[in-house]
Nucleic acid binder design. Structure first.
Lengths: 151, 151
DNA sequence: GACAGGTTGTTGAACCGTAAACTAAACTGA
DNA sequence: TCAGTTTAGTTTACGGTTCAACAACCTGTC
């Protein structure tokens, strides 16, 4: 007979869970507010980061979608907007005629270069510098466990 | 002379930061997927939770907005939708004629009672049970530091 | 007691994300 | 070879969020 009763969170676990929800919201608020002054949101910023790290600043749409955890549909929309802002452009993929490569423009690269120091500083002020280093490492292990394998 | 050079994240810090972004996204995905089967999203669920904990299952709109970290405008829209689903209703506030109280209906309460065990189970499977207990506590301290005081 | 300034909550438009349907191309195997 | 399936990316419609403007009310001060 399998247990039917739900295993509630105890008071401590519940407190931590709510802190997590609050903390995540707070961090996102701060990062978004700061990036807005560059006309970017976190999603667009991450796209620029991943393109900047890629060979020839270019990635297949589906590959990029996975890296930034956006649905393909969402990425299509986001890239279209960024394209009309001149930050990226689209190139047909030579090896697979279904494929499309997103490629960062010089203007996109320059914007990233300009925004990055301020963004990193936000990440520090919102999280990294606020937290005890040992706790920060533990947070890393925790999140790696969350992302790891099944389901 | 103040330092101008940005203090970049070192490799370890960057790895942890990216794990954090990935982990948070993963957790939200899982929770939303599960709540969808009750016709709720995380925002609506949290509204029900906070109302259920309040005296007479009732809270001022602005108070509720703060607790669930939604803008007032967003809460107005969300509550309107939930009202038309029969989960909450609105009552004028006697002491302040600008005020509006959101109050949970019996139907809203019953939905919460039905959804809660499954939701708690998701929280466990997505985070609590996946993480070493000591790391989980560290995560709590980290998030409390994020939420605490200035800015 | 009136007015300046802040607060509460709503509105409507613009914007962004989601979901499903769809086109085109590439595999797969019989 | 070719029917069936899978994959890539886009399109469309819809729903939710944000933003700015607004009306109604409260609060303190002169």
């Amino acid at each position: 007979m399998t247990p039917v009763k739900p295993r509630w969170l105890n008071a401590e676990q519940q407190r931590i869970w709510r802190s997590f929800l609050n903390g995540v919201a707070r961090i996102n608020e701060r990062l978004d507010a700061e990036l807005r002054s560059f006309g970017l949101d976190l999603g667009e910023y991450e796209i620029l980061v991943h393109l900047s790290e890629a060979d020839r600043h270019m990635l297949r749409m589906s590959d990029l979608a996975e890296r930034v955890r956006q649905s393909r549909s969402r990425l299509t929309h986001t890239i279209s907007r960024m394209e009309s802002k001149g930050l990226v452009s689209r190139v047909a993929c030579p090896s697979d005629r279904r494929g499309v490569n997103a490629i960062m423009t010089e203007m996109g690269y320059q914007l990233l270069v300009k925004a990055a120091p301020s963004h990193v500083d936000s990440v520090r002020r919102a999280l990294v510098d606020r937290v005890d280093p040992a706790d920060f490492e533990a947070l890393g292990r925790a999140m790696e466990a969350v992302v790891r394998d099944p389901d």
